[in-house]
């Protein structure tokens, strides 16, 4: 049992810590996207007639929900995981029990996916309340956001596994995450970008998240969803494998 489900107590530990502060953090989860959508959605939206045949608010909401999944999974996999690994030595404590490095990494990755859901679901709710969600098929976006969280969380854990301190995360944030957030079609369609940016954007996992989630939320036709999901699954698996290997090297000396 332990070999298969050993990650569950690791996930559960993080969940229990989160639950202690759940109320204030949930308020933030609802509050921030609400203001984003109000300010940008109505603000920019008043200058923009329609984007891809929908109001800008709707376009933006379906993108921000993806960006939020990425950002929350990334933050959790970088800073919070690093604190558990380094400052608190939580993982060292866990590795003195029957659990393995793989259990720790999978448990942490599952938790980043959970955090992605916890943070992006309220945005969908707010968007729905503002009339920016097409119909109930938007619920299908949730498993996609979970998968996105797992992929971005695992990628962050790769960075954490070789990190020497918090400063180290700046490179990843500014060189990878920020460009991805801005150029993956969250705020505007990538088709309006120069050709080379469009080509670059295809290499961003977030582009593939948006490509599936936006149609599900806004009622646009889904194009090649399995291909996009496969890209995310490959990212998640490859990053998980790399993070496990790197952390084993770091923790088992």
């Amino acid at each position: 049992m332990m070999a298969v489900l050993g990650w569950v107590p690791v996930w559960r530990r993080n969940f229990l810590v989160w639950r202690k502060l759940a109320l204030p953090s949930l308020l933030g989860n609802f509050g921030e996207p609400l203001f984003y959508l109000l300010a940008l959605g109505y603000g920019f939206g008043s200058f923009i007639d329609q984007v891809q045949g929908m109001p800008y608010l709707m376009f933006l909401a379906s993108g921000i929900v993806c960006g939020s999944a990425m950002n929350s999974a990334t933050l959790e996999g970088l800073y919070s995981a690093y604190v558990r690994m380094s400052m608190q030595q939580t993982w060292e404590g866990i590795l003195a029990t029957p659990l393995s490095v793989r259990d720790v990494v999978v448990g942490e990755m599952m938790w980043t996916g959970t955090k992605a859901l916890i943070n992006s679901t309220p945005i969908l709710v707010v968007a729905a309340a503002l009339g920016a969600v097409h119909d109930w098929s938007a619920l299908w976006a949730l498993p996609v956001l979970l998968l996105a969280g797992l992929a971005f969380g695992a990628m962050a854990l790769v960075v954490t596994s070789v990190a020497t301190g918090f400063d180290f995360f700046m490179y990843y944030s500014t060189l990878i995450i920020t460009p991805m957030f801005l150029l993956s079609g969250v705020f505007f369609p990538i088709e309006v970008m120069p050709g080379w940016v469009q080509g670059l954007a295809q290499w961003f996992p977030l582009t593939h998240v948006v490509a599936v989630v936006r149609p599900l939320v806004t009622g646009l036709p889904l194009v090649a969803p399995l291909l996009h999901l496969a890209v995310l699954a490959v990212c998640a698996t490859a990053a998980l494998t790399a993070a496990t290997w790197l952390l084993r090297r770091r923790l088992i000396r």
Binding site: R13, Q88, E92, T97, L99
Partner: peptide, 30 residues
């Protein structure tokens, strides 16, 4: 499963209470 470890530096979970620390650690043993 049959071993207990007291590490050189305390790595108790600062986010949990005293009792929760024991419960959480127990969960790692299933």
């Amino acid at each position: 499963r049959r071993l207990g470890v007291v590490p050189q530096f305390d790595n108790l979970d600062p986010d949990f209470t005293v009792a929760e620390n024991l419960q959480t650690y127990g969960s790692y043993f299933g």
